[in-house]
């Protein structure tokens, strides 16, 4: 073993910076979060009491935590299918070399991706404003509504609004993934399909989609994990309100750990427990997706051959 270590010492040396940085900024925080999750601690004083699994027990009986968890799932289910299907349709259209201005369309759709989330959040707050907001103005002018809609101030409309903004913001990145996936479909496959008079939707459904299925699962995974990381957008648009209506898990964790008011003291230990639980859920999702991707890749090979 030592001989192997010695032989590859330069290789290991090259790995060292990554390991150190990963240790500092990835592994240590994970270990620290697990450690804090087992303590009743505000985070700012020395009164740190070991409570074992106590925080988790409390967490599982906390209806506000479960509501936030459900909202995260609703957000995930609301954004990912929409984002993937719309971007796939756009990718199929824009993948057509004969379509004029496809580069321009791609750029326009990608533009929100490179715009900072906080800027997007603030701009959309203005756009959706019930007072002089252009969206309400348009809906009023068209006679669709008779009174301005308080999109971000009503529990009925806040989640669909934030979901809509999120999908708009990240549509471009999913589009790029789909385009990359579509470009892996060999030209011969298209040519063969044409010879067999398989065109249009049938071509996409029976030929293209099975080939790009492994990519679809990878894109699904990336989109799903992305949809669970919506802290800056929701903070800049709604702060989790009104009355918890847009409080997803990350906002719950942040509010519990730091943001305080009206006599609340931070509960870093409790927030860490929520974070650990949420992390485990995301990790499970990732593992499931990895397994599914592997299986899909195997079946895609069969289609190609």
């Amino acid at each position: 073993m030592f001989e192997t270590l010695h032989r590859y010492r330069y290789h290991y040396l090259m790995l060292l910076p990554g390991l150190i940085l990963g240790g500092m900024f990835v592994f240590y925080p994970i270990v620290a979060a697990c450690y804090y999750a087992m303590h009743d601690w505000s985070g700012f004083n020395s009164d740190k009491v070991f409570v074992g699994m106590g925080n988790f027990v409390k967490l599982f009986s906390d209806p506000i935590f479960w509501d936030a968890f459900k909202r995260s799932l609703v957000f995930l289910l609301g954004t990912v299918p929409l984002q993937m299907s719309v971007s796939l349709v756009l990718a199929v259209l824009l993948n057509n070399q004969l379509l004029k201005m496809s580069t321009w369309f791609r750029t326009m759709i990608f533009l929100p991706v490179v715009t900072p989330v906080a800027v997007i959040g603030i701009i959309w707050t203005f756009l959706l404003s019930p007072f002089n907001g252009p969206i309400n103005g348009l809906l009023l002018d068209l006679g669709i509504i008779s009174r301005p809609v308080d999109f971000l101030g009503s529990s009925a409309t806040v989640m669909p609004s934030v979901i809509g903004v999120y999908v708009w913001k990240w549509l471009g990145i999913t589009l790029i993934y789909w385009l990359a996936a579509l470009q892996t479909v060999p030209d011969e496959v298209y040519d063969s399909a044409k010879l067999d008079r398989c065109r249009g939707a049938r071509l996409i459904w029976y030929i293209v989609l099975p080939i790009i299925l492994p990519f679809a699962l990878a894109i699904l995974l990336i989109s799903a994990v992305g949809a669970l990381n919506v802290f800056p957008l929701i903070m800049s648009m709604t702060n989790g309100g009104p009355f918890f209506a847009s409080e997803v898990m990350e906002i719950f964790i942040y509010r519990t750990a730091f943001a305080t008011g009206d006599g609340s003291i931070p509960r870093l230990g409790y927030a860490a427990a929520a974070g650990v639980f949420f992390g485990v859920v995301v990790l499970s999702l990732t593992i499931l997706q990895a397994i599914a991707t592997r299986r899909a890749r195997a079946s895609a090979k069969q289609v190609r051959s």
């Binding site: 004083n45 506000i64 101030g153 009503s154 529990s155 309100g241 009104p242 009355f243 918890f244 209506a245 008011g261 009206d262 006599g263 609340s264 003291i265 509960r267």
Partner: peptide, 23 residues
């Protein structure tokens, strides 16, 4: 004061919820 933990649905949130029609 150091031990006081306000209820999660505190005074401010309750009023907001009532005026917003959530409560």
């Amino acid at each position: 004061i150091g031990s006081f933990q306000a209820p999660e649905i505190n005074f401010a949130r309750t009023v907001q919820g009532l005026v917003a029609g959530e409560l």
